[in-house]
């Protein structure tokens, strides 16, 4: 009995010791020397691995930060300026402040605005639907509504709004990682500058067809009439391919463009209700 115990202990001890020796040498042999700052930087990042920075996950971004000589081109959109400030402190570099951004789906073609002209019956992803044909409505630019952006979002920031036809981005949850921008096969999603109180004035349309065609397909399509362009005093609006675009970096939220739009393609969000007298409008926000 006792001899068995001794054997057992000795055998186990020998196995353990051998394994330890092997492990030690293997560890030595394959040792990877890494800049310890990479761990520090990674620790200060949000850890969502969303890829919003353009790198494959937070660690890759941390490695890029450590290698970089200045942080001008690098930005963690999720962490924002606070995180980048911490990263800068760790690396002894200068932080470059960037405007926070928020995603926006530039299509307002919900079912009541954009009549269906066919119905899709296949695998319900936008990528596959758009590879089969232009979509269920006559607008070949509009949202397909199958929610590839919803699937891509790691932050629950997209409400699919089943039955509506177009998802909605929830401003308070969106971190502007850009995953949805890449996921959208119609290129509808734009990262816009985040304004106070999440206010925004946007052309919610990407239709580049001629006015008549666009209007026929969708009642809230931009027809490229240039009325908003003429109204804007800040050069924020450009018209290209029968389509108006409001540059969020230039827009001052004066809201003058929205009322002149004949198709209501320009939408304003999160503003207090307009007062009856048009003159007052101008002073509300700027």
């Amino acid at each position: 009995m006792s001899i068995t115990v001794v054997y057992t202990i000795v055998t186990l001890a020998v196995i353990g010791a051998t394994a330890a020796v092997i492990l030690y040498f293997v560890a030595q042999k394959f040792k990877v020397v890494e800049d310890p700052r990479i761990d520090d930087v990674e620790g200060s990042l949000p850890g969502a691995n969303c890829g919003g920075c353009g790198f494959a996950g937070c660690r890759a971004f941390a490695e890029a930060c450590v290698k970089a000589s200045d942080l001008g081109d690098l930005n963690c959109p999720v962490g924002g300026n606070d995180t980048m400030g911490q990263v800068a402190t760790i690396l002894g570099l200068e932080a470059v402040a960037k405007d926070p951004r928020v995603a926006f789906i530039r299509c307002n073609g919900t079912c009541d605005h954009r009549p269906k002209t066919s119905q899709f019956d296949g695998a319900t992803t936008c990528a596959i639907a758009s590879s089969v044909y232009s979509g269920e409505s006559d607008c070949q630019f509009g949202c397909l509504g199958y929610g590839d952006c919803y699937d891509a979002c790691e932050f629950d920031a997209i409400d699919l709004r089943a039955g509506m036809g177009v998802p909605l981005i929830l401003d308070d949850k969106c971190v502007a990682c850009g995953a949805c921008v890449d996921a959208c096969p119609k290129d509808l999603i734009e990262l816009r500058k985040r304004m106070p109180k999440d206010r925004k004035v946007v052309v919610a349309c990407r239709n580049m067809d001629k006015g008549g065609v666009a209007k026929k397909a969708c009642s809230v399509a931009c027809i490229g009439c240039s009325k908003c362009f003429k109204e804007c005093k800040f050069d924020a609006i450009t018209i290209e391919n029968n389509l108006a675009f409001i540059d969020s970096d230039k827009c001052k939220l004066c809201r003058k463009c929205a009322p002149v739009c004949p198709t209501n393609a320009i939408i304003e969000l999160n503003f207090p209700p307009r007062k009856v007298k048009p003159e007052v409008e101008v002073e509300t926000n700027s």
């Binding site: 002209t117 066919s118 899709f120 296949g122 596959i128 089969v132 269920e136």
Partner: peptide
């Protein structure tokens, strides 16, 4: 009714 479109 609307025509159905689906992949082959």
């Amino acid at each position: 009714k609307l025509l159905t479109v689906s992949p082959s």
